[in-house]
Amino acid sequence: MTAPAKTAPAAQGEGRPVGPHPGDEPLGNPAARWLSVLTSLLLLALSGVAARDLWYHFYRDEPLDESWLGRTWNFLGSFAADAVAVTLGIILILLGLILVFFTFKPRPHGYVRVNSPASIWTRPVDIARKATYTTRGDLGGEQVRTKANRKSVKVQVVDDGSGPAMQERVTRSLNNEFRTLTTPPAVSVKLLPNPQARQVAGPARTASADAKATTTPEVTQ
């Protein structure tokens, strides 16, 4: 009998996606970022004060009680257990809880994934710009305002006189444009009154009113 053929060992990395594949969503800056910066600046300032006290203590023979930190500790230690001290302690506790909350607060989600083998993500501001560009290209107008987030797109456009037909056309065009997103946003189109139509209607109403005013009323006997 022949011996069974030896199977080749599994290649390293087998089972992993080959080539470009979607990566993790890029997240926004954590809420504790600026708190960390401010805390670092505060610690640097305290380090400078401590260095100053050490310098004056060893080279200027300044007593520890007369140093900046010594005066601070003496001032804090002289507080009596009154309403002011209790209020200050409560404020410090609340401040600590707020810092803990911002420390564990998740990073914000601010991107929408594009259906693609590669990892492509877009921002709501880019979606708004794309909606404005698409609407202007479809209507040929310039008076378009757009607001967008990860779940919805709100477009305001001046009515060209077609009314609901224009609204439906813009909505359909934007829905087709955003089909490439993994989670397409809900499109909302609002029609604004046309100022040129108002200007044309104004003189017409004025002329009609003048014509009625100059008409001679009939006299009945």
Rank of each mutant, 00 (worst) to 15 (best):
G202D: 15
S188H: 07
K105W: 07
R145C: 00
Q196R: 11
E142K: 13
D53F: 12
A186I: 14
P26E: 06
L92H: 15
D159G: 01
I93V: 09
V157H: 08
V155C: 03
F101W: 15
A10P: 15
N149I: 02
E14K: 09
G77N: 13
P193R: 07
L94E: 14
A80H: 13
T72E: 14
A131Q: 00
A45K: 15
P30Q: 00
L174V: 00
P9F: 03
A45P: 02
E218L: 15
R33L: 08
L38D: 05
Q156W: 03
E177I: 01
E218H: 12
P22V: 06
A11V: 15
D65T: 07
R179K: 08
P195D: 04
E142I: 06
A31Q: 05
D160S: 04
T122G: 01
H57D: 04
A165T: 13
I91W: 07
D61F: 12
R60E: 11
V155F: 03
V49N: 10
A211V: 01
E168W: 12
E142F: 09
Y133V: 01
P63C: 09
L41R: 04
L38T: 10
T103Y: 08
L69A: 03
A5F: 07
A80S: 15
D24C: 12
H57F: 13
V112N: 01
T39D: 11
L35F: 13
P22A: 01
V100M: 14
L54D: 10
A209C: 02
G19F: 09
F104A: 12
R123L: 03
P184W: 00
A3P: 09
V170N: 00
A209F: 10
H109I: 09
P108A: 07
P185H: 07
A85L: 04
G19P: 05
P9R: 04
T135A: 05
F178L: 02
G110H: 02
A186C: 03
A197T: 11
D138R: 08
N115T: 13
Q167F: 03
L181K: 03
L64A: 09
L95T: 11
Q167Y: 13
V125E: 00
A5H: 10
L42K: 15
G140I: 11
L54M: 11
L99M: 11
L43M: 09
Q199M: 06
A204G: 14
T135N: 05
V125A: 00
